[in-house]
Design a protein around this nucleic acid. Structure first.
Lengths: 337, 337
DNA sequence: ATAAATTACGGTAACGTTACCGGTATTGAT
DNA sequence: ATCAATACCGGTAACGTTACCGTAATTTAT
């Protein structure tokens, strides 16, 4: 690794090419009024010196950066990963590059309180717009456009892309009820999050529509990650009259159900049917029947929406809903008596 | 979404708090010589105005940014994802935040040719150091430290973290040979990549050590993604004397093997044993026996190494090797006659 | 041949921040 | 009461880039 004490600047290039910095800047930005001959000379000097323009300085001065920002609390989380796949696809097709900002952990810097901070950090400086995943703020102050993917609150004051959580939950319940299940457990998500609330509502409403009384002992806590769901499942399966099916608020919770079921000797789907939510990439190989909320497409749509906003083109709607669809695999069957 | 024409600057804060910009800068950077009273006043003004310091301007002026850069060609690729998980873990525990730069697709901007460009872009401006994944360049010019994860070339001129590909391949072969397999297919990775070369070498050397002649018709092309492996597997399984086991250069290739085997009616592991390489998160649910090269740990180790370099602490070695370990699941059995 | 338009380039001023050097008050010591 | 030390804060100059304006040289129009 060659260490240079100071990076090569536009000044160095100008000096070496015997022109002014203005002229170098012009060729860098593809302006027209520069002679072919000098342009080539400058270009060759740039290549020779290995010059790369300073992102910070450039961002500070010019408006267009061809860079989209993404704010994610945790890029190792399967949910984030699916969304990022879609974002990545859209970015690959665009002229924009992507800058992802993460602190690695929601807890590291006070989570929601700092969303505004990260958005400003990117949007006030290096990016043309940002996408924020799972935002909890109701509003953002920003001078460049912002689009949220799956915001955690209802009716935010900014454009967003979201799945149809309530409708998806209804469909899951229709499916399970259609198979003949009557005692269906529900593993909750984080209760402060809008999508978790909508899924729970769908669960309850579907039961009511089927004239089944909601049994609160079948609704157990969760937080969208495996360990909590594991514990809650142990609790459900230890009931005198355990459920014949479990609706987990997301696929990672379903993993916890699998783990608990295996330990207690419940076979899936013979003894216990399981449905998840999200359709993360692992679900396919788990054989998990789940509601695909197309996280991937949500990311994709968000980028497209943001690019339109950046280019000041009209967008159809500020609240883009992506329909969920049930993916039937092998984790459900009819209940036995 | 509140749109502000111009972002709030340190000047605005200074004016509102009736102090100079220098003083505001001092409280922002936690300097000591500022009265408690004024500090609190400035802090409250900052909160009230929703001020966030401009990343570009700050980066331009000060040395320390507490920001680590990551250059990845494609953040939707399972391989990248596993590495990013480890990086994320290490970042979460550190005082550094992470800025990931991606173009979304290796092909978008000429791949390897532009690695230097992206490294400079981040390292000459906003970050204190960068990690580069799957680099193909033999050297980098940079004024801040750089660490590579799984470089694609041998003996690069910069610090790196890598798995023991050759050793891992040997172990896989020992395992398959130990089960009694004699005709073992190999689905290659991208041949220009060092790790693929080492795995192939391991494959061949293990056969030689067992006095089995290398049959070139059992070595089929691949490129680390599913479709190519699928096609190559169809080819292998159509041989007069098809292999009883297949060693796929990575887990995604193994997915292609699964797909082809299913279509041709080969049951895994009864009719065909399969081993992968990487241990991506899907592998667990596929029941795939695979070589865990701890991509996650590679990412983790790279961050730790980089942080040491940034803080000018000594590092033990510039070439950190992470041992592979075989994860035995259910995709292999003894061959039938 | 002269004026007007065009081409090609240089100079200067920002952008928002921090580093550095100072300069007042205030306090403490003698 | 005088001087030194300290606490607190302001002014100015950068950092590397692009936007803007200006101007000399060349070409075109009349």
């Amino acid at each position: 690794m060659q260490r240079k004490k100071h990076a090569v600047t536009i000044q160095d290039v100008a000096k070496a090419a015997k022109v002014s910095v203005s002229t170098v800047s012009r060729v860098l930005n593809g302006k027209v009024d520069v002679a072919n001959e000098t342009q080539e000379r400058i270009l060759s000097v740039i290549a020779q010196l290995g010059y790369t323009s300073n992102l910070a300085a450039r961002s500070m001065r010019s408006r267009r950066k061809n860079l989209i920002g993404l704010v994610v609390p945790d890029i190792g989380f399967p949910y984030s990963i699916e969304i990022m796949k879609g974002i990545n696809r859209a970015i690959a097709q665009s002229k924009f590059d992507l800058l992802v900002y993460t602190t690695g952990d929601v807890r590291k810097n006070g989570s929601a309180l700092h969303e505004q901070h990260y958005v400003s950090l990117l949007n006030n400086s290096v990016t043309d717009g940002v996408i924020i995943v799972a935002s909890a703020a109701s509003d953002f102050i920003t001078n460049a456009p912002i689009v949220a993917v799956d915001p955690h609150i209802v009716n935010p004051n900014y454009p967003y892309v979201q799945g149809t959580n309530y409708q998806g939950a209804l469909e899951i319940m229709e499916y399970l009820l259609g198979l003949g299940h009557r005692r269906i457990g529900f593993i909750n998500g984080r209760p402060e999050i809008a999508s978790a609330q909508r899924r729970l509502e769908g669960y309850k409403d579907a039961l009511k529509a089927a004239n089944i009384k909601v049994d609160e002992s079948l609704i157990v806590p969760g937080d969208f990650v495996q360990p909590a769901a594991y514990k809650s499942t142990l609790q459900l399966l230890s009931l005198k009259d355990p459920p014949t099916a479990i609706f987990a608020a997301n696929d990672q919770s379903a993993m916890g159900v699998y783990q608990a079921a295996e330990e207690l000797g419940f076979r899936i789907p013979e003894d216990l049917s399981v449905v998840g939510f999200d359709n993360i990439s692992e679900a396919k190989y788990m054989g998990l029947t789940t509601m695909d909320q197309s996280l991937d497409e949500m990311g994709y749509a968000a980028v497209q929406m943001l690019i339109k906003l950046i280019q000041k083109e009209p967008v159809e709607t500020e609240a883009h809903k992506i329909p969920t669809k049930l993916i039937v695999r092998t984790s459900c069957s009819k209940p036995r008596h």
